[in-house]
Structures are given as structure tokens and as C-alpha cells.
Design a protein around this nucleic acid. Structure first.
Lengths: 366, 366
DNA sequence: TCCGGTTTCGGGAACGTTCCCAAGGCTTCC
DNA sequence: GGAAGCCTTGGGAACGTTCCCGAAACCGGA
């Protein structure tokens, strides 16, 4: 059914080979000594203090000399040494983003939002993977401290609030965790989102709805569970433990969970999964069992990752505004970076949207 | 067919609200003055030179004093200031990775390979998005220079080889471009990969094969075109321009391209797309037209991104070893970083694999 | 005991920038 | 005309580290 083949092309002969440099090749070994502020000063006939003032944008300098200095800077191709600058000012205009794993399609979008926001004020964003391990996370936080990063955005894997606060720079938590009350936080309203999903299915006429709940780590994922309970209570539906299955956030687990749900005697007519990936797994399994989606089974996911639109039928899902989360986090950080007065911790809850696609519909009449 | 709804949850009342800090809350305004090498020296009763020697791992220090110093360092929680260190040594142990767009699932995997390789030698990797624009790319390269990054890995969007060489640090090009002959390069063998795909389809019995070729920018993507031509010649197939369509690398363009191909009088029985995303678009459109995959139409993509396995049927594709590309790039950089003698430019071609999944099969008998 | 050599250490300069302070030049007003 | 004030500038110290150089301590052998 599935196989792997390799073929080597003509150019592959050169694998790890070296090839000769042309006659006009550029010399590699030339060391270009960087020009410093002092040479600029000398060339412009002013003192380094004045050049520095121009660089830093001080108003304390006569317009004509400013033009002159800028001219010389341009002419000499001078570029300020941020290391020296940072050493003196203790600011580096660098922000670190620590996520569990950039290979999860959720985070790159958050990163983009953060970058686009921070870059507008000349900050650079450094991405780091904690890999879900506290040790790697600690290493990165240490790097951030040693290299004097100005701020941190983090989805915590194991670090405590105490140690983040002790970090000394502005910090924003990505995701809504109750145990970081003293820090800024921005995340999606998974509770409301889950409610949206179940309500959507209820209004379509579904009464037996399966729930694939993600394996929650450290208090996350509780929101969905709470919403599920509240939903059942709100619409006066019976609590049926056989309709609820726990699964780690990957495709195969989604399939397994769906199998459990669908082979129950009175199988659900719809399934909500805590994650798009889980939902896709469920869809795949249902189709393997010969069920047609959405006629025989409706499926709703959560996140609205890129791939949700490529399934057949395309996946109805609760979309999280990933980019906006990044933007919000960036704004929080900028607020703190730009003000020297105390700002009490804030929390930004980004609403979810229900995106109705092809995987949901009314149940077949019994 | 498709709609968006928003719902506000109870906790969303707190949107951008502040909430009180508990009595045991940790003070934010406390500024922890970082301990310096001098305080360590004083506490240990040695000179700062000795402490520095210990930090830098010099052998020129008596074992006992070394332990003593390390002890004091640990006790005081001292962390070296990398800014000062970098200013003095002109090395920062930071490497920049410039890619066109981290939201493309291809790059995060490359990034992981690069990070895993470089972190083993205490280097940190900073990710930057050029967004396909030369201006942003230039900004990041400038940042890298000003902040004295030790090396650059880049998938060039508009920068010239001259300016990369002039950058002065080790550079590795991601992707195989002919116009960067003086720099290290690592990329996939798209030529051989494309040949694999077409050969696979040919062996299944397909003779009329459509080709959605990516919109090549600056010489990239030529490899696929060359392979296509060679394939036709090799198997003595007629050159039919109506079987070849150009499209930018996104889903909608894949749909459009497929539409063009499939509404031709003698429609192809198979399609190879330059990209998984394009292939997915093609699959979607074919299914909208009522075609069954792979019975009515076989589809092959390229890259093997995460989503390729989630489509229905799952996508046969030419897998690129994204992680290995990152690893290879990291190795090249380390080689240059660790040696001060001249190394001629090298090129690493990572082979592709054909991953046969559900989207390909023999054509229906005519 | 003394001497050459090695090991170990401390003092100070340097990296390139920013910031503080003071000085000079100019205007303005009494 | 001189003092007070502002605008503009220059000199030097400081940021925290590494590196060079010289000095002290130590060792073994004659």
C-alpha cells in the first residue's frame, strides 16, 4: 500500500563534493573591519558624542550637523554595533518567543502576529522550542537573561510563575492558565468556542454527541470539559460517560477515539473533537467504517489549522485567531516596554469563531 | 454553506480587564541588579581575570581555585553577560535563519534540524521571515550584522551572492540555486524527485499526465521543468503544452490549475503538482467535478508536508527530507565556524523519496 | 642555596557605545 | 556692556567582559 523509493539524479553525483571557484569568485577570507562611531566622527569633523546623539535620535543636535553626520554614515556604510549599545543601555530590542514546538502549525501563526507587531517598533523576535521539556525551557530562559533580551512571550511547559517573575523582564503568557495570575496572559476562549460547537450541533438536531477531549496537561484543556458539562446541563441532556473519550493530540489517537465512540451500541450522530487533528483522525476512521459525512456522522474540530480546509468534506471547526493572539501578546509586551510605571497584570481573551464547512449537517431521521 | 458565529463566554467579560493581585503576589517593580564577574571575584577572593579564565574554560587555572570559583558562581547565581562577552570577542554564538515564510509548513522542520544541530555546540538560532520581499530580507541581514551574528542560513528572496559574501560571516544557502556558486548550499534533489513522480505514474500505466508547475521565482523550480522535459523525451511521449499549467504556490491556484487541465477535451488521467499544497487544491477540484481519486484521476504532490497524510485519499507525494536539510546546513556552518582556514564552497544534495499513498493508481481502461 | 623554567595569578587596557558634566557660543534683556 | 539663559558640542567615564603582559609562586636539579 505504501512504499518508498529513491532515485539519484545526475547532479546528485556532486553530493558533498566541492566544486572549483570561478576566476571572478569573491574572496571569502577578506575580513572587513567594521567602521566605528569614532571613524564616523573623525570623517565628519565632530566628536563621537555628537554622532551618538544623531544615532540615538536626540533633538539636542543642530540640524545641519545632523545631516552632515547622516551623510557620512551613509557614505561610510556605518552600522551601529548593537552589542556595545546593548551593553551600555542594557536594552537589546530582542524578544524571545518560547513555544513547545514550532512544527505544530498553530505556533507559526502566533509567531507571525507577534513579529509583525513588535517589528513595527524595531524589535526582533527570536523563536525557541521548549520541546515540552522543562529543562530545554530553562536553557532558553537562561539564554534570554544572559543575552539581555528585553521581553519574553511563552507558552509554559514547566516553568513556574515565580521564576518567570524573577526573570526581571516583561513576560506574557500564551494560553489561558489559571496558575499565572501575576503575569499578562493572552489566549483563546476555548470555553465559549466549545459551547459554540456543541450548540451548532444541537441546533442541527443532534442529541447524542460524542466528545473527544484532548489529554490535558497541567490544567489546560479543562475549559472544553467545563463547556461540555455546562452544555449538557443547559439543554437538559443526560450525562453519558460512554460518549466521552480522552486522547492525546495526534491523528492516530483521533482514529482510536472515534473507533471507541462509533462501535458503541447507540453510536453518536455527531462528534466534537478538542483539536482539528483529532477531528481529522475521527473523520478518516468514520469513512473507513463506511459512514458518509455529514449524513451519517457530523464532525466538528477546533483550531482551524491550515489543513482543515483540505479534507473531504472540509472540516467544520471552531477557529482560533492565532495571528491575533500573537498581536495581542505583542501589544502587551510593548505596553510594558514603553512604560516605566507599574502596570497590573492583564488578560486578553480572544474570541473563537465557528466556521461551518462541509462536515456537519442534520442527523438522518430515525 | 459557510458561516461564522461568535459567542462570548462568562470569562470573556474580563477581556482586557485587569484583576487584583493576591496578597502574596510577587513584586514586579523589583529590579534585580545582575551580579557581575567582579563580585564573583571579590566573593571568591581572586581577581576578575581568574574568574574569566574559569568561565572561558582555560586550563591555565589551578584546579582548586577553579572549583572554588565555580562554587561561588553557583552560589551567587551569576550569569555571564553575553553582550559584554560578545563585544570583546566579536562572537555571539547566534545564527540567523532567514526563510520566506514560517507559516509554510516546510520551514519549521528545516528550522528544527538546524536548531538541533547548532544547539549541540551552544549556538542559538534566530528565525526571521523575509516574506518574499527583498527589503525585509535586507533588514534582517542588517540586523544580523549589527548584532554580530556568527552565521547565516538563508533561502534567498532577492539578495545577491555578492552581498551575502560581503556579509563577512559563514553563510549557507537553503535550496539549490545555480547563482550562488561561491557559497555552501544544501537542498533537495527536486530534479530526481520529479522524475520519480512521473516514472511512478508512467509505470502505473498513465500516458497523459498533467503538470502543475510552480511559479518559479529567480531560477528556482527549473529543476522540475527540466525533469518533466527529460521524462517526456525518455519515454518518447509527445510534448503537449496543454498538459502544463503554471501556478503560484497556494491552494486556490492549485484548484484553478486543475480546472484548466481537467476541462480540456482529452483530460489527463494523472496530475503531478510541484507542491503538496497545489496537489491538494487539484484534488479538491477534481472531487468537486465528481471525479473519484485515484480511479478517475491520480494525483502526486511534492514536499510531504504534515497535511499530506490528512487528505482523503491521502496524498502520494515526493517527500523531501526537510529535517535533514536543516541538519546539513547546520553542519556546514559549524565546519566554517570551527575552522579558521579556507574551506571551498560545498553543496549537499539531499535525495527525495517517493511516498506512495492513496491518491495514485492505474488509470481506468479506455 | 641558587637558578631556569613552568604554572598560576593580578593589573590594566581594550571592545564600541551611551550618558553625564562642563564648557563655549550665541541670544536676549536689563 | 555685562549677566543670565539656552543651544550645541566635546571630553571622559562607564557598561562587563576578554586578553595581553608581567609578576609572583612554585618546582626540580645542580
Amino acid at each position: 500500500m505504501s512504499g518508498i523509493r529513491t532515485l539519484t539524479s545526475p547532479i546528485a553525483h556532486a553530493i558533498v563534493g566541492t566544486f572549483p571557484r570561478g576566476a571572478d569568485s569573491v574572496a571569502h577570507s577578506v575580513i572587513v573591519p567594521k567602521t566605528t562611531i569614532i571613524e564616523v566622527a573623525r570623517a565628519a569633523g565632530v566628536s563621537k558624542s555628537t554622532v551618538s546623539r544623531v544615532l540615538v535620535g536626540s533633538t539636542q543636535v543642530k540640524p545641519e550637523t545632523k545631516v552632515l553626520v547622516l551623510q557620512v554614515i551613509d557614505q561610510l556604510g556605518y552600522e551601529r554595533n548593537e552589542l556595545a549599545s546593548g551593553l551600555r543601555t542594557d536594552r537589546t530590542r530582542m524578544v524571545m518567543l518560547v513555544t513547545p514546538d514550532i512544527m505544530n502549525p498553530f505556533w507559526p501563526e502566533v509567531a507571525r502576529g507577534l513579529q509583525d507587531t513588535l517589528e513595527r517598533q524595531e524589535y526582533s523576535v527570536v523563536l525557541a522550542n521548549s520541546d515540552w521539556t522543562a529543562a530545554r525551557e530553562q536553557r532558553f530562559l537562561s539564554t534570554a537573561r544572559r543575552s539581555r533580551f528585553d521581553a519574553i512571550a511563552i507558552n509554559p511547559a514547566g516553568v513556574t510563575e515565580r521564576s518567570l517573575v524573577a526573570h526581571g523582564t516583561p513576560v506574557v503568557i500564551l494560553g489561558l492558565c489559571d496558575d499565572f495570575a501575576n503575569l499578562d496572559m493572552v489566549g483563546s476562549d476555548s470555553y465559549a468556542g466549545t459551547l459554540l460547537a456543541f450548540t451548532h450541533l444541537y441546533e442541527l438536531g443532534h442529541r447524542r454527541i460524542g466528545f473527544i477531549r484532548g489529554k490535558h496537561r497541567s490544567g489546560r484543556g479543562q475549559a472544553r470539559q467545563r463547556a461540555y458539562n455546562d452544555f449538557l446541563q443547559l439543554y437538559d441532556l443526560p450525562v453519558d460517560p460512554t460518549l466521552s473519550v480522552e486522547a492525546p493530540f495526534d491523528l492516530a489517537s483521533g482514529q482510536r477515539a472515534a473507533q471507541i465512540l462509533l462501535q458503541r451500541p447507540a453510536r453518536p450522530s455527531a462528534i466534537f473533537a478538542a483539536n482539528d487533528v483529532l477531528a481529522m483522525g475521527a473523520m478518516q476512521l468514520a469513512q473507513q467504517l463506511g459512514l458518509t459525512i455529514p449524513t451519517d456522522l457530523s464532525v466538528v474540530g477546533m483550531d482551524d489549522i491550515y489543513a482543515a480546509v483540505t479534507t473531504l468534506p472540509s472540516l467544520t471547526t471552531v477557529a482560533k485567531s492565532k495571528y491575533e493572539i500573537g498581536v495581542g501578546a505583542g501589544r502587551f509586551l510593548l505596553d510594558r516596554l514603553n512604560s516605566d510605571t507599574f502596570i497590573p497584570p492583564r488578560r486578553l481573551v480572544v474570541p473563537c469563531h465557528l466556521v461551518v464547512r462541509g462536515s456537519t449537517g442534520p442527523p438522518v431521521a430515525v
